[in-house]
Computed example of a mutant assay.
Amino acid sequence: METIAPLWLWLVFVTFVIVALFVDFVVLKKQGAHEVSVREAVNWSLAWVGLSLLFNVLFWFAIRDTTGSTAIANEKSLEFLTGYLIEKSLAVDNIFVFLLIFTYFSVPPAFQKRVLMIGIIGAIVLRTIMILLGAWLLDQFHWILYVFGAFLILTGVKMWWAAGKEESLEDNPALKLLRKILPVSQHYDGEKFWTVENGKKIATPLLMVVALVGMTDVIFAVDSIPAIFAITKDPFIVLTSNVFAILGLRAMFFLLQAAASRFHLLNYGLAIILVFIGTKMMLIDIYKIPVAVSLGVVLTILAITMVWSSKTAPNT
């Protein structure tokens, strides 16, 4: 697994993630359980996006100094930006499912913040493992690119047909499995994952929610990780763009939660993006679509879909 990033940049990235999570946890603990306002969500979203762009600037300087080439630095930083945007876009689908889970379990708004924080940590660990494994497989077996490409195209088609349809957790196999394994209380006990009823220790609904959020992210990672490998095979760029997108997921959730109805057609755009990226993968040995073109296509699709959504939003 070859990467263009120097060792010191890996260390900077790991240190940044640890510090960011620590600060987030400290702030979370000081604030306690509370409902996140739209203003707070906007501020945190801007902060995470700003930090991601700042890291990309550092990445650009690191690659330029390592290779001595401005052209290579431009190309690699553009790959990071494109990968980040794709992961951020596909995370919207995660958020809609998270909304469904929180609604189904009637999770109090004050508890949602902690659930998402735990889900983010789990997502970072699991995605790191999946990305490193995926990079190794691509390094060993080039034909897996075609498998990833076909999978993304099929996923995009499936997402298009499922868009706009009423979703339900009643037939969710993961939920059925959890209910068979764990006895669950009918009531929340603050932010606790376990409670005692009739002298017996049982799980609270909050533990079920955390487990489902974690499982959901793993499922969506199977879509999003192959998508970024269509942009770059460098494990550093794949990992960093993924992690930075995930770090801002909690703030993005509360931001979109307030405006979910205004982006009711966004899944159609995401479906088209997946088909485009899958096609790009399938054509990799015939014609390599430039990263700048990919970035432009993704931005255009998102812009059109969001404008289309806002113009046709219910009650507007």
Results as ranks from 00 to 15, higher is better:
167 E>K: 10
287 Y>W: 12
1 M>R: 04
48 W>S: 10
1 M>W: 09
258 A>V: 15
189 D>T: 11
147 V>K: 02
161 W>Y: 15
168 S>A: 01
208 M>K: 04
152 L>G: 03
38 V>A: 10
95 I>G: 00
168 S>Y: 03
308 W>G: 00
252 M>V: 02
172 N>R: 00
278 G>T: 10
182 L>E: 12
88 K>E: 09
59 F>H: 08
304 I>C: 03
203 A>W: 10
92 V>G: 03
104 Y>C: 04
38 V>Q: 07
87 E>F: 08
47 A>V: 14
242 N>R: 03
150 A>C: 04
137 L>R: 01
128 T>F: 14
244 F>S: 02
277 I>E: 02
214 G>C: 15
312 T>Y: 10
114 R>K: 15
18 I>R: 12
145 L>P: 00
159 M>H: 11
86 I>S: 06
6 P>V: 11
118 I>Q: 05
181 I>D: 03
216 T>A: 15
299 L>Y: 05
304 I>H: 01
168 S>F: 04
235 P>G: 07
263 F>T: 04
13 F>P: 03
182 L>V: 14
268 Y>F: 15
262 R>Q: 13
127 R>M: 05
208 M>D: 06
176 K>N: 07
255 L>F: 15
183 P>W: 14
120 I>M: 09
265 L>G: 02
143 W>E: 03
268 Y>A: 03
19 V>D: 06
211 A>M: 14
295 L>G: 13
238 V>N: 03
186 Q>Y: 00
149 G>T: 00
230 A>R: 00
266 L>H: 00
260 A>K: 06
233 K>V: 06
309 S>D: 06
135 A>C: 05
92 V>C: 06
125 V>S: 03
240 T>G: 06
316 T>R: 04
158 K>A: 14
265 L>C: 10
57 V>S: 01
18 I>A: 15
181 I>N: 02
109 P>S: 10
149 G>P: 00
71 A>W: 12
195 T>Q: 07
73 A>D: 11
9 L>G: 12
95 I>D: 04
75 E>Q: 08
107 V>H: 06
265 L>R: 15
218 V>H: 01
269 G>Y: 01
295 L>H: 01
259 A>V: 12
8 W>M: 05
35 E>R: 15
207 L>A: 12
89 S>P: 02
181 I>Q: 02
170 E>P: 06
142 H>F: 13
14 V>F: 14
14 V>T: 13
113 K>R: 14
221 A>T: 02
25 F>K: 14
